[in-house]
């Protein structure tokens, strides 16, 4: 197993959380009710915390002295390896909840599997993430059920969000060469198993929410190879602005 593959794999894990946290942070101060504003920011904080641990570790694996901030603020669009799902705009609250639900349904079994990773550091990071991910999934599935089984309007909005975002779920489970190498080394889990848990969660929650599971049609891909939608460039332009405008400065 090469360090490069482990570096790439760790960045993929980190970037999902970093970008999702960024998106959730955009809600801070604009939530539908104060209590929910606070809840959503808690999630953003959990995600950024896990992202920082992973980025710091990625820097160590790479061995070139890059810090969490170097990796977050000084990589360009093609070097970000998050799945496209997490970069999708917040949209209405149904889109935000569905995006998080789909991610959580993948993230929880992933974190559970990583507890047994042969990589001690990834296993340790997963140890903290599992508890957070359990809570995240409960929060997003509760809301999805409320929307699906709430009012006609909320049902419709949730179904639209689900239909819009479903195309991004395929990418969560693609296993390219890097991933296969990680599985072989016992670092990463086989994603077909994660997919089975994901499917079971989705079916259970959607049925309770009286929502229809979209048909697996065209699945968007490319995020793991750094081929993103146009949205990501705007996220980075905003996120990286100060570090780019004042190279080398300390904050």
């Amino acid at each position: 197993m090469s360090n490069e593959a482990l570096f790439t794999y760790t960045l993929r894990l980190a970037d999902d959380l970093l970008i999702l946290s960024h998106r959730l942070g955009e809600w801070c101060g604009h939530g539908p009710v104060l209590e929910e504003d606070i809840a959503l920011t808690n999630r953003a904080l959990d995600h950024i915390g896990e992202a920082r641990n992973l980025l710091t570790y990625a820097g160590e694996v790479e061995g070139k002295g890059r810090t969490e901030d170097d990796l977050a603020f000084l990589r360009n669009e093609r070097q970000f390896l998050n799945t496209k799902l997490v970069e999708q705009p917040n949209g209405d609250y149904a889109h935000t909840i569905v995006r998080s639900f789909l991610f959580d349904a993948y993230h929880l079994p992933l974190a559970e599997a990583l507890l047994k990773s042969s990589d001690a550091q990834l296993a340790a990071i997963a140890g903290k993430a599992v508890k957070e991910a359990q809570y995240h999934l409960r929060h997003s599935n509760d809301w999805l059920i409320r929307f699906g089984d709430g009012t006609e309007e909320s049902h419709q909005r949730a179904q639209i969000a689900l239909d819009n975002l479903w195309t991004f779920t395929g990418d969560l489970f693609t296993q390219d060469e890097v991933h296969q190498a990680m599985v072989k080394a016992g670092v990463a889990p086989d994603l077909t198993k994660i997919k089975a848990t994901f499917d079971a969660t989705v079916d259970k929650v959607l049925s309770e929410a009286t929502l229809k599971r979209p048909v697996d049609g065209f699945m968007a891909s490319g995020g793991r190879q750094g081929k993103h939608g146009e949205q990501l460039g705007f996220i980075l332009a905003e996120m990286q602005y100060l570090q780019r405008a004042y190279p080398g400065a300390t904050w």
């Binding site: 970093l18 960024h22 942070g25 955009e26 801070c28 101060g29 604009h30 939530g31 104060l34 504003d37 606070i38 920011t41 808690n42 953003a44 904080l45 950024i48 915390g49 992202a51 920082r52 980025l55 969490e68 901030d69 977050a72 603020f73 905003e238 996120m239 602005y241 100060l242 570090q243 400065a249 904050w251």
Partner: peptide, 24 residues
Amino acid sequence: GNWISRAPSLKRKAILLAKVQDEA
């Protein structure tokens, strides 16, 4: 909240998120 998306380091971003959340 305006500056959460532009905070210059991940540490500052986490602090600012937590702080603005406290205000809520």
